[in-house]
Each structure stands twice: as C-alpha cells, then as structure tokens.
C-alpha cells in the first residue's frame, strides 16, 4: 500500500526504487510528532474527558453513571441556564470577531499588499498587541476604560464626545462587546498576516492580465484576488471559531473574573469550564462536571470543524480549480 499519489505517472524505474526504500521514512517522519502529541496531549485529555462519565463520591472514589452528567448539564435548570448563557455569549464573541476582526484584517492586509511606503513599519506595529500577554492586555484596557483614571473619557472629550463615555466593562449591556473588541484589538494581527501572506503569493501575471483586461484596482481585488485567497479566509474563519471557544478564556478571566461579571454577561464556555473544573473561592472544583463541560466544548468545536471540512473547504477547493 505504500505508494505516492503519482504512481500512475511515475516511470517504472522510479517505482522500483521506491519499493526498495520501503516505508520506513514514513514512520520516521510521523513518529516523533505523533508520540509527543499522544503522550502529552491526547492521553491527558482522554483521561480528563473519561471523568465525565463518572460521578465523584465523598471518599474521593468515582462511580460510573453513563451520560448522567450530560443530562444534568443540559436539563437541570441551573446548569442549563449557565451552559446556554455561556454558549450564546461565545456566539456573540464569534460574531464580533467575524464582522470586525476578520474584515479589518482583510482591509489592512489588502492595503499593505499595495506595498505602500513604510508598509513594513505599519505591519510590524499593528502586530505588536498580538504579542502581548493577556495579563498585560487586560491590565492596559482596564486602565484605559477605568472611570477612575479617565483616559477614555478624556480622549472622547478631545473629539467633543465626552458625553458618550460609559463604564462599558461594568454594564451588562456593553461588557461582552467591549471585551470582544479588546480581543479584536489584540488579535487582528493574525488574520492580517495570514491574508497578507496569501495576497502577495498571488502571481503577478494574473494581476497584469486583469489589468490588461481593463479592470480597475478595486475590481481586481474583488474579482481576481479575493476568490484566490478564499482558502485562507476559510482557515481564518475556522481558526477564529476554535479560538473563540478556547483562547477567549484567558482574556475574559483576566478582565472580568471567573464569574464573567457583571451578572454572567461575559461568561463563556471557557470561564464556566474553569470554575466548574477547578473551583472558585468556596465553590469546590468538580472534575466530573468540569469534564462534562469540556466534552461539550469539544463536541461544539467538532461540529464546527466538520461543517468547515465538509462544506466550506470542499467548495473552496472546487473554486481553486
């Protein structure tokens, strides 16, 4: 079975030689990555997820209860309320990233791909927030938006809009969007870089040909470049989806705490998972319910990735041809 995809086209000599080489190289290429990944990621995670099928007893032992914890999470009113609230907050977060972060990243990348003067400097500086730790980002934005420090208010005042200032992070109506925008500020560099790399990889001949056809710069972007970078946009979208469920935790935890203040308006799957699994003040960690939340998180992401692989990517590949 060891053969390359091009067997049919390969000359007979080449085929013979490959047979002799055997398949050892495949093992050599795969083994280190598979081993490290299995030992230090898959095994510990499987250990944890397995716990979702058990319930803990007082003496520390556990008893198998099948899907009982899942039933609790989805049908017990207190758990279900928290779960769906966190889930819908995650969707809002995802939505903000899709309509603000990714289009902004696309815009910046498109402008940078025109190779303006100082392009390198812009690119480098816009990427700076992405490099910062959430500890730092959280602290910076809390300061800027703090009613006490008054930076945001003074800045708004400078453009005559001081009246607009609100303690955004503290209001249920605006806290989630504010946190999302802070996250956009931090991470917009990633889609920008990915899209930029895709844009400048487009062969010049294609663009020259379009120009000869009399297309304007704008039309070239929409009709030639954009379809060509669709696979990259697909990757950006799916990474945004995954990051929204996993990476969003750190920022929200550092700015709004483990309870997603105010009044759970910024509670996401990550914070729910963290306080369930590890506990919070007097709430004791419950590894079994925590593992249940984690498994649900896993299924939600799995569904998204499956949809992406099944639909989006297949269609995109057809586009490419």
């Amino acid at each position: 079975m060891t053969q390359t995809a091009t067997d049919s086209a390969a000359p007979a000599a080449l085929r013979r030689r490959r047979k002799r080489a055997g398949r050892l190289h495949i093992v050599v290429f795969l083994a280190p990555a598979v081993l490290i990944y299995t030992i230090f990621s898959v095994y510990p995670l499987a250990e944890s997820l397995r716990l979702s099928l058990y319930d803990g007893l007082e003496d520390g032992s556990a008893v198998w209860i099948g899907l009982g914890n899942y039933a609790t999470l989805l049908f017990d009113p207190d758990w279900a309320r928290q779960f769906w609230n966190a889930f819908s907050n995650n969707l809002v977060l995802f939505f903000v990233h899709m309509v603000v972060q990714n289009p902004l990243g696309l815009l910046l990348a498109a402008l940078l791909s025109l190779a303006p003067r100082f392009g390198g400097a812009y690119r480098t500086l816009i990427f700076v927030p992405t490099l910062l730790s959430v500890v730092i980002v959280g602290f910076i934005w809390e300061l800027i938006l703090s009613p006490l420090w008054g930076v945001a208010e003074t800045l708004l005042g400078a453009v005559g809009l001081a009246g607009l200032y609100q303690p955004w992070l503290g209001l249920e109506s605006s806290a989630l969007v504010t946190v999302s925008l802070i996250s956009v500020w931090q991470y917009v560099g990633i889609p920008m870089m990915l899209i930029y790399a895709a844009l400048i990889a487009i062969p010049d001949e294609l663009i020259d040909a379009a120009r000869v056809d009399g297309l304007s710069g704008f039309a070239i972007f929409w009709k030639v470049k954009l379809p060509l970078i669709l696979p990259t946009l697909g990757i950006v979208a799916i990474l945004t989806y995954i990051g929204n469920f996993t990476a969003s935790f750190d920022l929200i935890y550092s700015i709004q705490g483990a309870l997603g203040a105010p009044n759970f308006s910024t509670d996401v799957m990550g914070t729910l998972l963290f306080r369930t699994f590890f506990g919070q003040q007097l709430q004791l960690g419950d590894v079994h319910m925590g593992a249940t939340v984690a498994s649900m998180l896993f299924f939600i992401i799995l569904v998204g990735v499956t949809i992406y692989l099944a639909l989006v990517q297949r269609r995109l590949q057809r586009y490419e041809m």
């Binding site: 758990w79 249920e172 309870l259 203040a261 105010p262 009044n263 759970f264 919070q280 007097l282 709430q283």
Partner: peptide, 19 residues
C-alpha cells in the same frame, strides 16, 4: 451547587447596580 457564596457575589453586585 449553585454555590451560595458565588450567588452572593453576583446578586450583591446586581442589587447595587440596580438590575
């Protein structure tokens, strides 16, 4: 669960915030 102390954090803030 639900944890009374966690509940107190949230409802205490809610009462002060007037919600």
């Amino acid at each position: 669960e639900p944890n009374t102390w966690n509940n107190l954090w949230t409802v205490g803030a809610n009462v002060i915030n007037g919600v």
